[in-house]
Computed example of a mutant assay.
Amino acid sequence: MIRTRTRTRSLIRRGAVAAAAGAAALVLAACGSDDGDPAADGGGSGGKKGASASRQEHNAADVAFAQGMIPHHRQAVEMADLAPDRAGSDEVRKLAAAIEKAQAPEIEKLSGWLASWGEDVPAAGESGHSMHDSGSGSGSGSGSAAGMMSAADMAKLEKASGAAFDTAFMEMMIEHHEGAVAMAGTERAEGAYGPARKMAGEIIRTQETEIDTMKSLLDKG
C-alpha cells in the first residue's frame, strides 16, 4: 500500500514537471515567432512594403512643380498685399485676402519638400517682377514663368487705386491663376509624389473657382 502511494506521487510529480516544461517551450516559441515569423511583423514582405510606401518617391516633375510654384505663389501674394490699401471694392479685398491665406502656407510646404529632397529652394528674392524684368505675362509663358507678371505689370498695379486697381488686379490675377492651373495640371499628369499631386489638385479647384469669380466681377463692372 505504501509503495503504491509513493509510486503515484512520483508519477504526479513527473507529470507536473512535464507540463511546466511544455508551457515554457510554448512561451519561447511564441517569443521566437515575434522576431522571425512573417505574420508577426505585418506579413513579412507586406510589412516591408508598408514601410516603403510611407517614404513616397518623387520625380523630376515634382521638383519642377515645387521650384516653379514657389516664385509663382510669391508673386500672387505680392499682388494680394497691394489690395488692402489700393482696392476700391470689398470683393477685391476679400479675394486678395483669400489668395494670400491659401498660397502663403503652400509656399512653406513646397519649400519643405524641396529641402527634404536635397533640391534647391528658390531664394526669397526670386519672386514677382524681380524674376521677370522684361516681357509680359500674356499667357504665352511656360514652366515656372507661366502667367507671371513683368516688372512693368507690377509697377502699373502698384500705381493704381480704386476701380482702376480692381480691374488691373483681376485681369492680371486671372492670367496668373491660369498659369498656375496649367502648372498644376502638369504635376497631376506627370508627378509621382502624392502630397504634391494632391496640392496640385487643390490649386486647380481653388484657382479655377477664383477665376470664375473674377470674370464675373469684371463683367459686372
Rank of each mutant, 00 (worst) to 15 (best):
G143M: 09
A61E: 13
E57A: 14
E126A: 14
F65M: 03
V121K: 09
L157M: 04
A98V: 08
E57L: 15
V77A: 10
Q67P: 02
S134G: 13
L95R: 03
D120Q: 07
A83I: 12
G137N: 05
P105D: 14
A152C: 00
S136W: 08
I99P: 04
A76S: 11
D120Y: 00
G112S: 13
S111E: 04
A87L: 06
W117Y: 14
S52E: 14
R55W: 10
A64G: 01
L95D: 04
K109H: 12
G139A: 08
M154A: 06
P84E: 09
H73D: 10
Q75A: 09
D120I: 00
A97Q: 15
S116M: 05
S144P: 14
L114N: 08
E119W: 01
I107N: 03
A97N: 02
H72S: 10
K109S: 13
E57V: 10
S54Y: 04
D85L: 03
L157N: 01
G118H: 04
I70G: 07
Q67L: 02
G128T: 09
A104S: 12
G128R: 10
L114G: 02
P84I: 03
D81H: 02
R86T: 07
E108G: 11
G118V: 07
G147P: 11
E78L: 08
K101E: 15
Q103C: 07
H73R: 09
R86S: 11
A80V: 10
E106V: 06
A76L: 14
M131F: 11
V77Q: 01
L82S: 09
A83L: 05
G135Q: 05
E119H: 06
L157T: 01
L95S: 15
Q103N: 12
S140A: 15
M154T: 08
D62A: 07
P105M: 15
H129C: 03
P84C: 04
A155W: 03
E91N: 06
S130G: 10
A76P: 04
L157R: 00
G125M: 07
V77F: 12
A123P: 00
G128F: 06
A124W: 05
G137C: 09
S54W: 05
P84D: 02
N59I: 05
A115I: 00
H58C: 05
D120N: 05
E126M: 11
K156C: 03
P105F: 14
H129Y: 00
H129P: 10
A53P: 02
M154Q: 06
A151P: 01
G112A: 12
D81V: 01
W113F: 15
G88M: 09
